[in-house]
Design a protein around this nucleic acid. Structure first.
Lengths: 138, 138
DNA sequence: TATTGTTATACTCTATAACTATA
DNA sequence: TATAGTTATAGAGTATAACAATA
């Protein structure tokens, strides 16, 4: 992976490296990457519907169902009908879901710090800022 | 996509954004993303075997075959037996492959510059350097 | 009539195993 | 015996269509 590669190739390489390193952590907790993505999304607040959650994480609404089934069975998320629109189901973390997500995230943060070793604090700040910029640019 | 998200999520978000923007360019040239990845890998020099090429781009050697079949049929790559080991086939870009890759890469670079607008030259340099570091870190 | 959640189905992508040829 | 390329098959992942409940 070379610095004058396409930007997309660089992002893909970094993302693959991180994903491979995170897999053992998620495996140890019995979660898939997508399930962890759901927990992370819900950690910032409940989703007003499953459709909204699916769009938020760029995932298919039909596939989200089995994903939530697993998290529900594990007691990590709850789905309750929205009183204001009983078609929709509000998805939120349970107390156990909050705790489990915090544990996994902490482990992943430790891993990230190891991966980022060698970069200055300023370089790390620019990296995060630039990636966020790219993710939201048109 | 928020700056204090997991680094993996940030890379995934930036990578998805770039990939979606690049798709129309590749579609216009009748190539898949993986086929472009092959052209890019070969642009830096011929691959001594298909197995080496597969490992280089983190792709399955069995899937690489149909990928190369397509590129071969399009006249963009050639596969010749290695005189030193006739089991292996040396893969290289044809003249047309070199030309086509250069054209596509130029279009992608223009796109990248648009995506990077808003970041200073120094920030862009740090971004590329940090991503290359992440892609190769243990 | 439109939308949410759901299920069922088809399709694509990826991984595994076995075969041929060379070494 | 081991390896490169290939093919065929099975499996996982993803997308599409149709249905029930509610708006």
């Amino acid at each position: 992976m070379n610095e004058d590669d396409d930007l997309g190739a660089l992002c893909a390489g970094a993302g693959r490296n991180l994903a491979e390193a995170e897999r053992p952590i998620l495996d140890a907790h019995g979660l898939s990457m997508w399930q962890y993505v759901v927990l992370s999304a819900l950690a910032t607040g409940a989703a007003s519907s499953q459709l909204v959650l699916a769009q938020q994480i760029h995932y298919d609404k039909t596939r989200l169902i089995t994903l939530l089934d697993g998290l529900d069975a594990a007691g990590l998320v709850s789905r309750e009908p929205d009183p204001a629109d009983r078609r929709a189901r509000i998805v939120r973390l349970t107390l156990e879901g909050i705790r489990r997500h915090a544990v996994i995230r902490a482990e992943i943060r430790v891993l990230e710090e190891r991966k980022l070793a060698g970069l200055s604090a300023e370089e790390q700040r620019v990296l995060r800022s630039a990636l966020a910029h790219l993710a939201n640019s048109d």
